[in-house]
Every structure is written in structure tokens, then in C-alpha cells.
């Protein structure tokens, strides 16, 4: 079936290994047990935030490769992205590992868009081993989109905290006993007129609801088929709005719904509405969710990563915030 952004993968490519790295504050994360490596220094001991950002992603990739006894030269493709201007952290890391590289920007939805691209390359028979990943580093991202780190602006309750984390997934042709990619949906850019960059959950919720609807209707599935439907970084405000929108679509049971950004820091009020950033969904999907699938706790999950496609410039010019959500369906046979 080839139509309107719906993807199916008959060969069901598998995620053969994952690697997740995170910064010092993320040691307090509700998901920290699943992280492969955490750092005591937010710059990973390097000089600039951006170098630390690159290092995070590099380590996540190397960890994923080492788990399957591979080295970078064994990989056919690298699909990765981040939020910093022209994605230099990802590009510098790509020069270090030397894997043929496709830069991917879907803001915080890059975790899933890169995973989908890696799966497509594998499905097409062009790739035996592809690395998909995304990352964010708090200081590097906040200084670009918001204020200098030490500036004392008052954050409202809807504000989200950009995580320092990276997640990488190694995608290979189907292997028994590993989570596999069955279906996916490429999101549409949606703009519901939200313009507050400090309430991005509200801007992103309609995109997530749209992608969920298209995925379920397009693939003939229902929400109750899944052990887990996890959105990316809607956080508390966005997730409440998402549920309202989904109710209009006739879904009333939210037992199996969750949001990575909302859960990331537990209920710590210091982080306001919750976590965000390209590393947020990647770190959660490729640690906790992946592990629980391997443990057969989850048999079928739907991951809907959400991204706000704004730039500091578009906000200053008074534009609204276009948003995107990409979905991937993982199964464990």
C-alpha cells in the first residue's frame, strides 16, 4: 500500500540495538534506569555546549553499535538530526563516525522521522545496518530559541525544559526476537494558530491528534490494539489538549496513552510542564520502551513524536508555530 503518507514495511525491519546518553540533570529522570550513559558535566567535559551536544550523539551511536559488536564502518547509513541552527552537532558527529549521512530535521519529531527513513532504506534493500538518532542539549538549544541560560526570565507553568539527551537506534533487516517496525505515518505540518513559544505543547497537540487519526484510519487499526501509545514531548498542557482532541475522534479510553515529555522528569515542578527537545522522545523510546518490548511487556506500541517547527526568527516576525507529528508502530513477535 502506497498512499498519503501511510507507510507499511512488509519485511518488518528490526531495531537491533539502541544507545541512550543523557546529561547531569537527566539523572533525575523517571527513565534514567534505562540510559546507557550519563555525564556529570553538561558539556561532556568539552569546551562548548555544541561540542558536548555532538559528543552526546556520538556516544549514543557508538554504544548502540558496540552492543551488536559493530564499528561505524559496518553501517550503511546514518540518519540523524538536532535543533541547533544548521544541525552542526549532528554533522560534526557524522564527520567523526564517517557513516554516509542524511541530516534530518523534524524538530523534536526527528527521533521518529529518522527511524522511519532508516526503516525505508532497509525495506528497500539498500541498507543492512542504518543508524537513526536525534539529540538535544539544554544550553545549546535554549540559548538559541529562548534566552541566555543565566537570564532571569520567569517561566510559566506551560513552559517545557529542553533535555540534554541523545538516542540512537540501529536498524537492520528483520531478526527474530527483536522489536520490529511494521507501519508508520508521516505527519502533515499543522498550524492551529498558536504563537506562544513558551507553550509548545498546545501548538503541537493538534499535529499529534491528526497523525494518530490518520494512522488509525489509514491502517485500519484502533487505539485499543496497542499496549502503549506514546506521544513525544507534549508535556502536561499539550497532553491534556491532545486528549481533548482525541476524544472528538471518538476515543475515550486513555489507559494506554502516555507522553514521554510529561513523564520525563517525574512530577518535579522545577521543570514546569515537562521535558521537550529532540533528545526527549529518542531517549525514552530507545531506552524504556525498547527494553520493555524486548522483555515482551509490550507487544505492540505506537510512538508519535511531536515537533514544533518554529525558529527564533519566525517567532519574532509574529508568525504562528507550524507543528509536525510522525508515527511509527513497533511490534514484538
Amino acid at each position: 500500500m502506497v498512499m498519503k503518507g501511510l507507510l507499511t514495511f512488509p519485511s518488518t525491519p528490526s531495531i537491533v540495538a539502541t544507545g541512550v546518553t543523557a546529561g547531569p540533570l537527566e539523572k533525575k529522570s523517571a527513565f534514567q534506569a534505562g540510559f546507557d550513559k550519563t555525564y556529570d558535566d553538561e558539556r561532556c567535559g568539552l569546551k562548548t555546549n555544541e561540542q558536548g551536544h555532538s559528543k552526546l550523539m556520538e556516544d549514543a551511536c557508538m554504544i548502540a553499535l558496540s552492543k551488536i559488536d559493530k564499528v561505524p564502518s559496518d553501517a550503511d547509513f546514518l540518519v540523524a538530526g538536532d535543533l541547533v541552527n544548521q544541525m552542526t552537532p549532528s554533522s560534526f558527529f557524522a564527520t567523526t563516525v564517517g557513516i554516509p549521512y542524511l541530516g534530518m530535521f523534524s524538530a523534536c519529531a526527528t527521533s521518529v522521522s529518522s527511524l522511519l527513513t532508516a526503516a525505508l532504506l532497509t525495506e528497500a534493500g539498500m541498507s543492512k545496518l542504518a543508524i537513526a538518532g536525534s539529540s538535544s542539549q539544554h544550553n545549546a538549544v535554549e540559548r538559541q530559541f529562548r534566552y541566555p541560560i543565566e537570564y532571569g526570565a520567569q517561566k510559566g507553568a506551560a513552559t517545557q525544559w529542553t533535555v540534554t539527551a541523545a538516542g540512537a537506534a540501529a536498524v537492520a533487516p528483520y531478526q527474530k526476537g527483536l522489536p520490529s517496525i511494521e507501519r508508520g505515518t508521516v505527519g502533515r505540518a499543522i498550524d492551529m494558530g498558536m504563537s506562544d513559544p513558551l507553550n509548545m505543547g498546545a501548538a503541537m497537540a493538534p499535529a499529534a491528534a491528526d497523525t494518530l487519526k490518520r494512522h488509525l484510519e489509514g491502517h485500519g487499526a484502533s487505539a485499543s490494539d496497542y499496549d502503549l501509545i506514546m506521544t513525544g514531548d507534549l508535556a502536561t498542557v499539550g497532553f491534556s489538549l491532545f486528549k481533548e482532541l482525541v476524544k472528538n475522534q471518538g476515543i475515550t479510553e486513555f489507559e494506554n496513552f502516555s507522553d514521554a515529555g510529561m513523564e520525563f522528569y517525574g512530577n518535579n515542578p522545577d521543570f514546569k510542564a515537562g521535558a521537550s527537545g529532540a533528545g526527549c522522545s529518542a531517549a525514552v523510546y530507545f531506552s524504556e520502551v525498547y527494553q520493555k518490548m524486548k522483555d515482551k511487556e509490550y507487544k505492540k506500541v505506537l510512538l508519535i513524536a511531536t515537533g514544533a517547527l518554529l525558529s527564533p526568527l519566525s517567532f519574532q516576525q509574529g508568525e504562528t508555530i507550524p507543528c509536525i507529528a510522525h508515527a511509527v508502530e513497533l511490534t514484538m513477535k
Binding site: Y147, P148, I149, E150, Y151, G152, A153, Q154, K155
Partner: peptide
């Protein structure tokens, strides 16, 4: 100062110390 700004809002931003914070943080 960012904690003062978070707690005090305009109370941290409006005095000249807030001006100083804006310059120094940048």
C-alpha cells in the same frame, strides 16, 4: 539571579539589577 527572576518575575527584571542580569547573562 535566574532563581530570583523565576521567583520574583518583574520584581527581578525591572530593577537595575535585572538590566545587569540581561547584560551579564548575554
Amino acid at each position: 539571579y535566574k532563581k530570583i527572576g523565576q521567583a520574583g518575575g518583574a520584581g527581578g527584571a525591572v530593577p537595575i539589577t535585572g538590566f545587569g542580569n540581561a547584560v551579564v547573562s548575554a
